[in-house]
């Protein structure tokens, strides 16, 4: 394995005394697709937000290609090559779908025409071509999730953080999305880290899985091994049913 592209070292973060993330470390090599899974409240999104610069960790560090990310503002982390989606979608409601994505493309070009063209291509890639003139208010939730992906993708990231973008998709749609990411990964070499509950997608897409529970990393390995790990099984099945 070549040196880690994304490296999280001993991340910890508490909110009002509640430990959301505790001593979590993992590496993602360049060009890999890794997944972060775990029950609700396991600290997955908090980990994402630390990587994306929304929260500063109480302890630990994150490097991208050797560059320290902790302490940078979210916008600078995006410029450093990290694109992210939000679990609770945040479309720009007063702008069309295409304009939403163009905002992402304006990360690397100041020419709005070029940004719009690139946005149109990105939307086509995600199967949203015919929705591009619409308001995000008028598209379905799965489409809004795709819009999140398109927007992040348009920034031309080297690392893509996907937060539950398959939620609510039908199995066939999930497969199509998986294929899209695989193609994207093969074509552009973009590194992907995803949070996902849809195991069908996790199994198909990721080469390696990190499992979090109660803010701690309890297991890491190939998807097929992880799902047989007793600790993982216990955290998913051995406890009272998760809330969601």
């Amino acid at each position: 394995m070549a040196g880690a592209f994304l490296r999280a070292r001993a991340l910890s973060k508490s909110f009002r005394g509640l430990r959301a993330v505790s001593d979590v470390s993992f590496d993602v090599p360049a060009g890999a697709i890794h997944a972060l899974i775990g029950p609700n409240g396991a600290g997955k999104t908090t980990t994402f937000n630390i990587v994306a610069g929304v929260f500063a960790p109480d302890a630990g560090g994150v490097t991208l290609d050797g560059v320290e990310l902790v302490g940078k503002r979210p916008e600078d982390i995006c410029r450093a090559g990290v694109g992210r989606t939000f679990q609770i979608v945040k479309p720009f409601r007063g702008m069309s779908v295409q304009e939403n994505v163009a905002v992402g493309a304006l990360r690397w070009t100041s020419n709005t025409r070029e940004a719009r063209d690139y946005a149109a291509d990105t939307l086509a890639l995600l199967g949203l071509a015919d929705k591009r003139a619409m308001s995000p208010d008028h598209i379905t939730l799965p489409d809004r999730k795709r819009l999140e992906v398109a927007r992040a993708l348009a920034t031309k990231p080297r690392l893509l953080l996907l937060d539950e973008v398959m939620a609510g998709l039908r199995p066939t749609e999930t497969d199509a999305m998986v294929a899209t990411f695989q193609k994207l990964n093969a074509d552009t070499g973009v590194t992907i880290l995803l949070i996902e509950h849809v195991m069908r997608a996790v199994m198909a897409l990721s080469q390696r899985v990190v499992v979090l529970n109660h803010g701690e990393k309890i297991c890491e390995g190939a998807p097929a091994d992880v799902v047989r790990d007793p600790a993982v099984l216990e955290c998913y099945l051995g406890e009272p049913a998760p809330h969601a």
Partner: peptide, 26 residues
Amino acid sequence: LASRLGYYWRAIREDQDAARSLGVDV
């Protein structure tokens, strides 16, 4: 409005956090 700044302004108006995540210096 037609410039990059105009796009960024509207993005900020709608959602500051999302704008930041796309590299907008809010």
